[in-house]
Simulated scan of single mutants.
Amino acid sequence: MERMSAPSPAPESAEAPPHRSGFACFVGRPNAGKSTLTNALVGQKVAITSNRPQTTRHTVRGIVHRPEAQLVLVDTPGLHKPRTLLGERLNDVVRTTWAEVDVIGFCLPADQKIGPGDRYIAAELAELKRTPKVAVVTKTDLVDSEGLAQQLLAVDQLARELGFEWQEIIPVSAVADQQVRLLADLLVPLLPEGPPLYPDGDLTDEPEQVMIAELIREAALEGVRDELPHSIAVVVEEMAPRAGRPADKPLIDIHAQVFLERPSQKGIVIGPKGKRLKEVGSRSRKHIEALLGTPVYLDLHVKVAKDWQRDPKALRRLGF
């Protein structure tokens, strides 16, 4: 029997582009949309958001997986003029992060004119000569096309005045899901070549208990009037599966403490007959159950840690 000749090899296809992986950091003054943007890119809630400034206190890494790249997003507190020891430590976190990432995205809201806080941050970014910088004009759903065009020109001019150029200027709306994917497309080529840094499927490297505490704190901040300063901290004291539950009906018990700075603030957080604290528990429990994928019993208690933002020992105890 004649042997069949092997088919001639197919012509080689063009080489696949090298895999890229690295860290990107969103910076900006408080409430510029950094955390919301991180959540939109990752596709899941990994960073606490609030309409109050200075919400983010822990560096939360959100991980965007692509076939050709892994983009690790570092979410930092907003850089601001510190009034407390906590404020100074948050600013230290920001500057340390800036020095370690591969690309920086500067978030500027489309609906607010560039102010002294933006100029202060831009001036600090100008000192980072080697790190690529992308201007991200956020909240574009809040302005019309003319207002957006004016803001884009102002953002371009800001860099020119400080002697540097943006690698890109991109308008986005995380809420309306406009150009979020394009932002990732623009960030990926600025990352170094390399293998994935985290296993496929991981969305964050933040410990679950820290994320749960942040979800509770977010719920506690919601709807609080101006009478309550930004002085809420949450610590998860205990978290464990409830014993004796059948395998197909698990329940996780979570006991958490909500810390305030003054006794007068307790009534605001607890509310009449405990109504507001129940709402905080109900609202945060839904997000916690979505995070863990299992039903949760959430036990919340409110305590006073006097002036904890200014007390080094209290800051350490509360994880700062």
Rank of each mutant, 00 (worst) to 15 (best):
L153C: 14
L85A: 10
M239E: 03
V46L: 07
A14R: 14
A10M: 12
A123T: 09
V137C: 02
Q178A: 14
I288A: 00
A233I: 09
A40C: 14
A24D: 01
E12S: 09
P116F: 06
I270S: 13
T59E: 04
V136N: 06
G293M: 05
E208T: 10
Q257K: 15
G87T: 13
E237T: 08
L90I: 15
L79F: 13
A10E: 15
R310K: 11
R95S: 12
V304W: 03
G281Y: 01
A69I: 06
A32K: 07
K81W: 13
R160Q: 11
L318V: 12
P263W: 08
L152M: 13
I268Q: 06
L260T: 14
V64C: 02
A32R: 05
H287M: 04
R317G: 13
A122G: 11
A159N: 01
H65P: 09
G87R: 10
L215S: 01
A290I: 01
G62D: 00
L260F: 14
P241W: 04
F106V: 06
R283G: 05
L191K: 02
V72M: 07
E168N: 12
P132W: 03
K286F: 03
E218Y: 00
A305T: 13
Q257V: 15
L158K: 00
V155H: 07
V180N: 06
R276L: 12
V296R: 00
P241M: 03
G22M: 04
A233K: 07
V296D: 00
S5L: 11
P189S: 09
R181G: 15
K34Y: 06
I254D: 01
R316G: 09
E124R: 06
T294C: 08
